[in-house]
Amino acid sequence: LPQTPVRAAMSTIQQLMIILNSANDTPSDNLLFYFNNCTVNPHEVIVKRIENMGITFKNKFAEAVGQGCAEIGSQRYKIGVRLYYRVMESLLKSEEKRLSVHNFSKLLNNDIFHISLLACALELVMATYGTSRNASQSMKVETDLSFPWIINILDLKAFELYMIVESFIKAEPSLTREMIKHLEGCEHKIMESLAWQQNSPLFELIKQSKDREGQADEPEPANY
């Protein structure tokens, strides 16, 4: 059958459903294994953060789309969290293989890592359902929920999301072409404009790399 916008959106949604049908709403046994291997066990903080961000997401979604759709926002968030845990597990497995490390305490206790991973998962869910919403216009929308809405409501810097996208795509081989194209589009928006806004962490990274280069250029003191 010819691919219409609605059909393309539906197949992406179905693909997302297939991916997440077997995913968990809470950390899997594998994830708990990694959490328990950490010097500082991040489990409680991770679960608490997901709860708190859930409240923020649902409130902002209802504000944007209409109070009558609060439950839809709740469902979207739930799907996003499943994808978040699923990709986290896959990321840790590949890092374990690549680095032969089992203790991911620093990474798993890094707030920015978790918020950017969750934001990436939620952006994908929003984009997948958003296209269908556009196609059906069934919901009253006060605010455009397309990117960068999700990083604004989660109070995440654009470049922080940028840092996770490639690893996210690598870690989740079942993403459809549309999903990957969408995330790539987000990357372009970030590098073309959002990453260059005031207070972006990109400026600090550029400064650090310049400092490193500067040190490399300075002649070594004689006592070396």
Binding site: L99, V101, F113, M163, E166, K170, R177
Partner: peptide, 21 residues
Amino acid sequence: TQDYHFGLEEGEGISELFDCD
């Protein structure tokens, strides 16, 4: 994923990106 332009270099992964190596 063949359309996506992977840019991370060899030996660069999520741990390095988030300064947790």
